[in-house]
Design a protein around this nucleic acid. Structure first.
Lengths: 194, 194
DNA sequence: CGGGCCTTTGACTGGTTTCAACTTCTGTGG
DNA sequence: CCACAGAAGTTGAAACCAGTCAAAGGCCCG
């Protein structure tokens, strides 16, 4: 299972990964499974692990005062899930993260990650690059949500993340886009007619 | 002028900064001034420098097909301005960055920054922390823009960035929040009545 | 004093939400 | 194998929030 992660690491890093380093990585990660609807993180808890998704898909969301869920992030194979803010600042998270399909995960505990950052250059580089990507993705999404209407946001989403479109039901994607399922349904009908 | 940056660096980094390192930093940064309304970066150009604001305030914004400006980021003393995506990927930027007040800046060219990352641990640590902060701030803003209405977004903005409120006119802040100046004016009136 | 820039306000418009009803689909247990 | 409940998607009508446009007034500065 860890092999999936080694493959992934290769794509991110210019540093070669020695056998000794692979061994370190292998021992740091905790292989784990999550059934559909099970939590990786619940609001109020601290984010103690980041999860690399080997198989399955997950969602990170916020529940507001009215009990409505707002999708903050969606992830599939080869993506990371976790709440950075809670992780970095060691504070309770405001988000929930759960499995949308049955999942195979590689969990990395906070302490282990901090050590890997120092000891494995490739891991360090990967982390920095992920941060950067994350920043850019958030930037784009923010720009989109501030300056585009529902239809444009949806078509942008399909362009950027085709791999997510068929993995989640429409009401989840609608929530991710900041619109209601009803509106998304109408938007899709409108696009069909073209 | 560089002293302002040394002070700043102290707050971010657990590493001490030697005199030799200070010397490296001093030579890497280019002190610079910008008059109100002058550009640091124009859409279509590549972001070749990041700017540390010693004095003044700046804005980063996108101009859409209709010619409307959308504020993406605002900054005052002690903040960094630049387009990460253009900087990292060495591609033309879609954003404009200009001075809203007369500014004193410390510019760091891309190449110099890459070297400092390797040679000055404190600088490296600062960069990572800034990335993290940036991530978290974007996350919060995104969450806010997806799940809150105009009034709540404004009150959150005032809570999070009191230092920005009096530095920019209302139509700029409105744009930053993704609403129009008219709506912001009405929101403020409504809040006054409470 | 005049011109820019900014804010406020009203009337109107329009995109989105809300709510509820109805349909389809799927998985589960009898 | 069917019945049924739960989850998901569609659709229409009404309500609402925010955008648009235009006019008017305040303020600062040359």
């Amino acid at each position: 299972m860890i092999e999936a992660f080694f493959d992934y690491l290769k794509n991110f890093s210019s540093y070669p990964v020695s056998e000794a380093e692979k061994d370190l990585l292998k021992r740091a990660f905790i292989p784990s499974k999550l059934r559909k609807r099970q939590y990786l993180l619940q609001a109020g808890d601290q984010c103690k692990h980041f999860a690399f998704i080997v198989k399955g898909c997950m969602r990170q969301y916020l529940v507001d005062e009215k009990g409505v869920e707002h999708m903050v992030r969606l992830g599939v194979e080869g993506w990371w899930m976790g709440d950075r803010e809670s992780w970095v600042k060691v504070t309770p998270s405001v988000f929930n993260i759960d499995a949308w399909e049955d999942c195979q995960l590689l969990l990395i505990p906070r302490q282990a990650a901090l050590e890997l950052l120092k000891k494995v250059p490739a891991f360090n580089e990967m982390t920095c690059q992920l941060d950067e990507r994350n920043n850019m993705a958030n930037q784009r999404r923010l720009t989109s949500s501030l300056s585009s209407n529902a239809e444009k946001r949806y078509t942008e989403f399909v362009d950027w993340y085709p791999e997510l479109v068929d993995r989640f039901p429409q009401h989840i994607i609608a929530s991710y886009l900041g619109i209601t399922k009803d509106t998304l349904s109408r938007v899709k009908r409108h696009l069909m007619r073209k």
